[in-house]
Design a protein around this nucleic acid. Structure first.
Length: 570
RNA sequence: CGGGGCAUAGCGCAGUUUGGUAGCGCACCUGGUUUGGGACCAGGGGGUCGGGGGUUCGAAUCCCUCUGCCCCGACCA
């Protein structure tokens, strides 16, 4: 391809509404154009990268006997009513009505449709297992689209679904997809981690998220450098073998005037914050009711709201609590403790049980207890893991200190079980002629998000740096002086030669000044640049590696072979 | 949905406080000079100042209202 025939609208200035570097670079390099909030056109270079990612996905999926299909974007409400999600999904689901007043939605995901497809055509255990996938636009009316393609309302996604006769079959399908995903993200040149994750409202037993590591990532993860353990912060566990062994001292109520925070109280009483109990007040909402609960964690820790919510089995929790409600329950903000707190439900972090002689609020103003011990001084309704694990806590597997990082979720593998097959009556007959619900797994990859995550991870002050596997072009050939006939002809010759060799190459034949062409090639980030300039008088051209910006002179006779070789090694 | 902010040429912005009929840089077009790191000179095109309503002799500017967008938070199969 010749760049004079492509629309590559690069910008010198950074668009004002792009917050993170990858979003800015995609806009500046002319990969995408925003059409509405969270809705983008993929311009030629951007779409080319997306196609390369999609092709890698297809190869790895097909290798594992997954079959590509194409389901409709527009889905009938009936299917969603059948699964129950028409009413559960909320405003995120884009709904529309046709001229006959029939309800439809734009698919945010395709469990309903794929389940309907399978139940129509799969009736026997002999047809199993089956794995179907598609690569298609998805729609979620996000409350707050942001970061360009990272959180958009329309996005390209590979979604796949496996159907097995039992859990053992699902385990195999899941494992195959896990391996496919690892292969895909490796081939895309990404630094990623597969982390254990919370399964969320969808239910299901097991799930891993594939996280591309990036400081701008929306998710926090912890991982172990010494073993394979890694988990989303919402799910992360830590080693709990630590145990205080000091003798229990006498419980005592002490005066702590105006000392409300952990830091204040600890300083005032001259105690380590780790030897205190922090209280977190929440309103938990259930399907039929709501209640105030108090969660207790070690003084220097934070609670994790997802864990707290899961431990309660609540639909949601928040801190939106009326002060009067607190007073009615006899709760004194700043002085909350687990002793004699009869009117509210208590959730205690399991770590507290292992600690001795703690400080906690006395449930009356200006007073705390010291030397508090679990069981001797108080009990509670619920003991669970509700703390936020952090860097330095010990790995639950090998007890090495954990590391932490931020990541962008680009893929997820999920054991769905029979949630949809049961509600939608997708069954097969087993050897005994008995109807059984299909056991499902679902597997997603955000293609558009992966493209941006790659930029977020691979860039420098000059612009993007693409891995060869998904670069918009593998090589750009750049005649230094546009009007120099010899240079241009030589560039064209080399361009044709390398094209014939199967190299994905772009000829920059635009009548720009040299500096502009250099700057644009670095902004766009082609892995290799060949500069055809003055050196052709000596029978040479220059090869520049984008990543290192290392330039070498190569004789014209050898350049194509050299490029071929480099593409395999960088 | 709560809080904050913005909307003026394709992009980035000034002008709004104090009302007088719109400007700068980049980009674009023409001509010329340049040509190995985002050139220079000269000329030029492009705006119902987000929409609607109001105040006024007169509104980008003041008032009301709607819409869109950005940031923080909440939310996120």
């Amino acid at each position: 391809m010749q760049s004079s025939k492509l629309i590559i609208p690069t910008l010198k200035e950074t668009p004002a509404d792009a917050e993170i570097i990858s979003h800015q670079l995609l806009l500046r390099a002319g990969f995408i154009k925003k059409q509405a909030q969270g809705i983008y056109t993929y311009l030629p270079l951007g779409w080319k990268v997306m196609k390369k990612i999609s092709d890698i996905v297809r190869i790895e999926m097909n290798k594992r006997d997954a079959q590509e299909i194409m389901m409709p974007i527009i889905q009938p409400a009936e299917l969603w009513q059948e699964s129950g999600r028409w009413h559960v999904y909320g405003k995120e689901l884009m709904r529309l009505t046709d001229r006959h007043e029939n309800d439809f939605c734009l698919g945010p995901t395709h469990e309903e449709v794929v389940t309907d497809v399978i139940r129509s055509f799969v009736n026997s255990y002999k047809q199993l297992p089956v794995n179907l996938y598609q690569i298609q636009n998805k729609y979620r009316d996000e409350r707050r689209p942001r970061f360009g393609l990272i959180r958009s309302r329309e996005f390209l996604m590979k979604d796949g679904y496996s159907f097995d006769r039992d859990e053992a079959g699902l385990d195999k399908s899941y494992q195959a997809m896990y391996e496919a995903y690892s292969a895909i993200f490796t081939r895309c040149g990404l630094s990623y981690r597969a982390v254990e994750a919370d399964s969320g409202a969808i239910g299901g037993s097991n799930t891993h998220e594939f996280m591309v590591l990036a400081d701008s990532g929306e998710a926090a993860i912890v991982f172990c450098e010494h073993c394979d353990y890694s988990a989303n912060i919402e799910k992360a566990k830590m080693d709990l073998s630590y145990q205080d062994h000091e003798p229990m001292d006498v419980l005592e109520k002490v005066l702590t005037p105006n000392q409300k925070t952990i830091v204040d109280v600890s300083t005032y009483l001259q105690r380590d914050p780790k030897k205190s109990i922090k209280a977190l007040l929440y309103k938990a909402r259930y399907e039929d009711r709501q209640e105030i609960i108090v969660a207790f964690v070690r003084g220097d820790r934070e609670g994790n709201e997802i864990k707290i919510q899961n431990s309660l089995g609540a639909l949601s929790i928040d801190m939106d609590i009326d002060e009067q409600e607190i007073l009615d329950l006899g709760i004194h903000r700043g002085y909350i403790g687990p002793i004699k707190l009869a009117k509210v439900k208590i959730v205690l972090d399991e770590e507290i049980m292992r600690l001795r002689n703690l400080v906690c609020g006395a449930n009356e103003d200006d007073h705390h207890y010291i030397n508090v011990n679990y069981d001797r001084d108080f009990q509670c309704d619920l003991i669970a893991d509700i703390k936020e694990v952090r860097e330095g806590d010990l790995c639950p597997i090998c007890r090495s200190p954990l590391s932490s990082a931020r990541g962008t979720e680009v893929g997820q593998v999920f054991k769905l079980g029979t949630k949809y097959s049961q509600s939608m009556h997708a069954t097969f007959l087993d050897e005994n002629g008995k109807a059984q619900p299909l056991v499902m797994g679902c597997y997603g990859i955000g293609i558009s998000r992966t493209m941006q995550a790659c930029v977020e991870q691979n860039h420098d002050e000059r612009g993007m740096i693409w891995p060869v596997s998904i670069a918009p072009f593998e090589v750009v050939i750049l005649p230094a002086v546009h009007k120099n006939i010899e240079q241009m002809n030589m560039a064209r010759d080399l361009y044709h030669e390398m094209q014939e060799m199967g190299i994905d190459i772009l000829l920059d034949d635009t009548p720009e000044r040299t500096g502009v062409k250099f700057a644009n090639s670095e902004l766009i980030g082609y892995p290799i640049r060949i500069t055809v300039g003055k050196l052709i008088e000596q029978g040479k051209v220059e090869i520049t590696i984008r990543k290192s910006m290392e330039t070498t002179e190569v004789s014209i006779a050898e350049v194509s072979e050299k490029v071929k070789e480099l593409l395999g090694t960088i």
